[in-house]
Design a protein around this nucleic acid. Structure first.
Length: 830
RNA sequence: GCGAAAGUGGCGGAAUUGGUAGACGCGCGGGACUUAGGAUCCCGUGGGGAAACCCGUCCGGGUUCGAGUCCCGGCUUUCGCACCA
């Protein structure tokens, strides 16, 4: 065989050279060995395992825990975690004892569906996925305290999830009621809303129906006002707070009573537009409204029955999506009395009125509401104007509804004619209230939280039904209610959880009377698992309590919580709710779980969203193999503002690698003889300040840019840097690139790790220069700059500026006005 | 439709309070060292112009000595909610 050496491409050659270079410590470093070395050492020495009982200045740095998918760690997870880790490492350098735990949110329909697809029991699948996640997280160099790892699927964890349920049950905040679910008649299973695509099952494509099942709910709506009010006092991203406010959806209005003609019944409605009551020309009930049967007259019986049948069978998603949906409805045959006008108005049924909001019934004012207008037009119902805008009066025809509820005055409204809308609202409610027909009411969009899932892969809801004793919470000493291993966990036609098929598990003795009883077969929502996990982390070693009071007092509430804004509403609202309930029951001393919350942005790839179908998903393993974890971490943070996300471009990674190579070279080449350069040191102090200011603001991209800028100064003109110019840089870069920092720190001869070295102080006096470039403008346009003393006064600055011919030529005559910003700028107006 | 955020070079993005627009990085151009360069280092790089200068932060107005930043009107994009009375 001929010798192949001559045909070896040069880049292979290059690789060899590069790794030799690394061994000798010259221009480029080899991350592999260094990263493995330090990951192993951190573990051996417990570097990242803080003493939770003794350490000074505890700081709880929490990130949203991942769902351990079979595909492994997603770049989005790593982006989130790295940003979190940098903040945590920084706090540690600032002298805090930092607790940065990690766990796995492994229950839920996601895992279950995947398990069904590949035909493996999730009990076998999840541990493998978790092991893979652990491996990947380790490689990323996160400062995680693995001693406090948790998984929501572990009985020692969900025992306490069940305990949380029992607390709510005890408190009267958990209750059962019949509620609609999406049902796929072909797959014979309950579907989550996001599994319904345009009214069809995501998996088999068949039309989805609505079914009614008994389900468990938590009364979160009772906490609506408190959840809303506390938003004013917590330090959270504004966008997140706004999303929560909108979700809670407080609206102030009134409830009004409308009596039924020739009957002793009455309909209660909720309205925010009591001012328009004179224009209420008909009423509408939701199809599920309990009064529907009693209000339907004999002739209308058939039509109403058919309509109710049809609408209630539609799936929840289609029914709620309003776009392009034509209004439908049916007349009940009955009439109500408008309490303002005394006139009879017809009562209709229509699915544009929702049973879940307000009272499930409305007074329809077609003149001043888009939906009512559309409905009235279609069914030929009367439309009356009761508000007139500017230039309009009572007779101005309404070719479209007038919905402005600020401007305008009341018309056709009896004694209230001429009143501005705002005043009219109050006056009319008061007028009706005096007659017992109305009262002011605050309503919320927030609905109670349905926690039942007719599925297998979740914590069984700890409830027992006894024929004699009724609904019983499982006694706390009998927890956990173990999820039995069953091989056939496929959902079936019965609409109940697969657990019902497990006879030995299903039949149980009543904890009260010892008689025959059966278990609740629904499992709880994954959002319940994640609603309290942060309470568990510091207390994972305690088997006999969900969270230890000493640990909790020491570590909670969480100092900084970081996560995606996709959880702005549900997860973050549920954690707040559960925390409030546990506080009210005396289990916790605080009622808000997270002092500070920041939402990170999302990474896209080359301008497009990452998706499996497009095949542009970034696999973190590949990048860490190629560039090393330090480069990868730093690059992720350099892409863009952490809270906004950014665009991952393969080509750009090299810039960051080059920066770390230059750091490596500067450190190894640095001299200890002689003195450091004055102006380099000034830049260093500026950089320490900048990076220290940027990290707490999560402005990681600008912090990195500042360090790169310093690197350019440090190495300008191929100078050989002084050790004192490099050491502090190694410390401030360490949160971003922890392995290389540890390695260099050790090579500098320090025995203690870099993360215990503290954050370098900057010398404020050293940052400012004595002379500055003062910008000179003429009529607001920059015409030049002059080198002057920092503390120069206006007159001297003007003199200096006039002395520059390039500036003086624009000034010509005497200045009309001079604007002077000390230390910055001089603007001469002529 | 409602709500939130954002529109800046060829690209990702800087510009804490109105005060040098384009930091930093990618890419690109030139050079040095080289048998070689997809390594390293140096210089340059918003557009127009030989230059003096002029023009430039989505579009149109406005406030101001001065506007990417503030105000009014519009357009576009992304995300969230979606018949909430």
């Amino acid at each position: 065989m001929p010798h192949a050496a001559g045909r070896v491409p040069s880049f292979l050659f290059m690789t060899v050279t590069r790794s030799l270079d690394a061994a000798e410590g010259s221009s480029s470093y080899n991350p592999d060995a260094i990263e493995q070395k330090w990951q192993a050492r951190w573990e051996e020495q417990g570097t990242n395992f803080p003493d939770l009982d003794q350490g000074p200045r505890p700081f709880y740095q929490l990130m949203m825990f991942p769902y351990p998918s079979a595909e492994g760690l997603h770049i989005g997870n790593l982006y989130a975690f790295t940003g979190n880790d940098i903040h945590g490492r920084f706090q540690r350098l600032r002298g805090h004892t930092v607790f940065e735990p990690m766990g796995f949110d492994a229950f839920g329909i996601h895992s279950e569906n995947f398990a069904l697809k590949v035909g493996v029991n999730p009990m076998d699948l999840i541990p493998k996925n978790i092991a893979n996640f652990r491996r990947q997280l380790r490689r990323a160099g996160l400062m995680l305290d693995w001693r406090h790892e948790l998984s929501t699927t572990d009985p020692s964890y969900y025992k306490w999830t069940q305990w949380v349920f029992l607390q709510l049950l005890k408190r009267g905040l958990a209750y059962k009621k019949r509620a609609a679910v999406n049902w796929c008649p072909v797959d014979k299973t309950v579907l989550a809303n996001e599994q319904v695509i345009a009214g069809h099952c995501e998996r088999c494509g068949s039309p989805v129906e609505q079914r009614f099942l008994e389900q468990w709910f938590f009364r979160i709506s009772e906490y609506a006002q408190r959840l809303l009010d506390n938003l004013d006092v917590i330090d959270w991203s504004e966008s997140t707070k706004t999303a929560q406010r909108n979700w809670i959806g407080q609206s102030e209005g009134a409830e009004g009573r409308f009596e039924i003609r020739d009957s002793n019944l009455a309909i209660t409605v909720f309205t925010t537009r009591a001012d328009t009551i004179f224009g209420a020309t008909y009423m509408v009930l939701a199809p599920e409204h309990p009064l529907v049967p009693s209000l339907t007259t004999a002739q209308q019986q058939e039509e109403v029955r058919a309509y109710v049948e049809r609408t209630t069978h539609q799936d929840l998603v289609t029914r709620k999506v309003a776009t392009d949906r034509e209004k439908t409805g049916v007349f009940t045959g009955s009439y109500a009395v408008n309490p303002a006008t005394g006139k009879d108005i017809p009562i209709w049924i229509a699915d544009y009125v929702l049973m879940e909001y307000g009272t499930g019934a409305i007074m329809a004012v077609p003149g001043h509401d888009d939906r009512d207008f559309e409905f009235a037009t279609k069914f030929g119902l009367p439309i009356v104007r009761v508000v007139a805008g500017e230039g309009e009066d009572a007779r101005t025809p309404l070719d479209r509804p007038y919905t402005d509820n600020e401007a305008g005055r009341l018309v056709n409204s009896g004694p209230f004619d001429g009143m501005p809308v705002r005043e009219g609202k109050k006056a009319i409610v008061q007028w009706l209230a005096e007659r017992g027909d109305a009262k002011p009411v605050v309503n919320y969009r927030l609905h109670d939280w349905c926690i039942s899932r007719q599925r297998y892969w979740g914590p069984p809801i700890p409830v027992i039904y006894c024929e004699k004793c009724g609904v019983q919470g499982v006694p706390e000493e009998d927890l956990p209610v173990l999820l039995p291993r069953i091989e056939d966990f496929r959902p079936d036609d019965s609409g109940v959880s697969p657990l019902a098929r497990h006879q030995e598990w299903y039949h149980v003795r009543c904890p009260k009377c010892g008689g025959d009883a059966r278990r609740e077969t629904d499992v709880s929502d994954t959002f319940l698992d994640s609603a309290w996990y942060f309470l568990r982390y510091p207390s994972t070693e305690f088997e006999d309590r969900p969270f230890d009071s000493g640990r909790t007092r020491r570590w909670m509430p969480v100092d900084t919580y970081i996560g995606g804004n996709e959880h702005a509403v549900l997860h973050l609202l549920y954690t707040r709710f559960v925390t409030m309930v546990l506080h009210d029951m005396g289990h916790l001393e605080f009622e808000e779980p997270f002092k500070r919350f920041r939402a990170h942005g999302h990474i896209i790839r080359e301008g497009a969203k990452m998706s499996k179908t497009k095949g542009n998903v970034v696999n973190p393993d590949r990048y860490i193999d190629e560039w090393g974890a330090d480069t990868f971490r730093t690059y992720l943070m350099f892409i863009g503002p952490y809270e906004e996300g950014g665009d991952f471009r393969d080509a750009s990674v090299s810039g960051v690698k080059r920066f770390l190579d230059r750091l490596w070279a500067s450190a190894l080449e640095s001299r200890t003889d002689g003195t450091p350069d004055e102006s380099v040191m000034r830049k260093l102090h500026q950089t320490i300040k900048k990076v220290g200011d940027d990290i707490p603001r999560l402005s990681y991209n600008t912090a990195i840019a500042a360090m790169m800028e310093y690197m350019n100064v440090l190495r300008a003109g191929e100078r050989r840097p002084h050790r004192a110019e490099v050491e502090p840089l190694v410390r401030i870069v360490s949160p971003f690139a922890p392995h290389i920092a540890e390695e260099l720190w050790e090579r500098f001869g320090h025995r203690q790790g870099v993360f215990d070295s503290g954050w370098p102080e900057y010398d404020a006096a050293r940052i400012e220069e004595d002379t500055i470039d003062l910008v000179v403008q003429v009529n607001g346009k920059v015409r030049g700059k002059v080198r002057v003393r920092r503390d120069i006064l206006q007159d001297d600055a003007l003199t200096a500026a006039m002395a520059e011919p390039n500036i003086a030529k624009f000034i010509g005559g005497p200045p009309k006005k001079v604007v002077f910003v000390p230390g910055r700028l001089l603007n001469v107006v002529v």
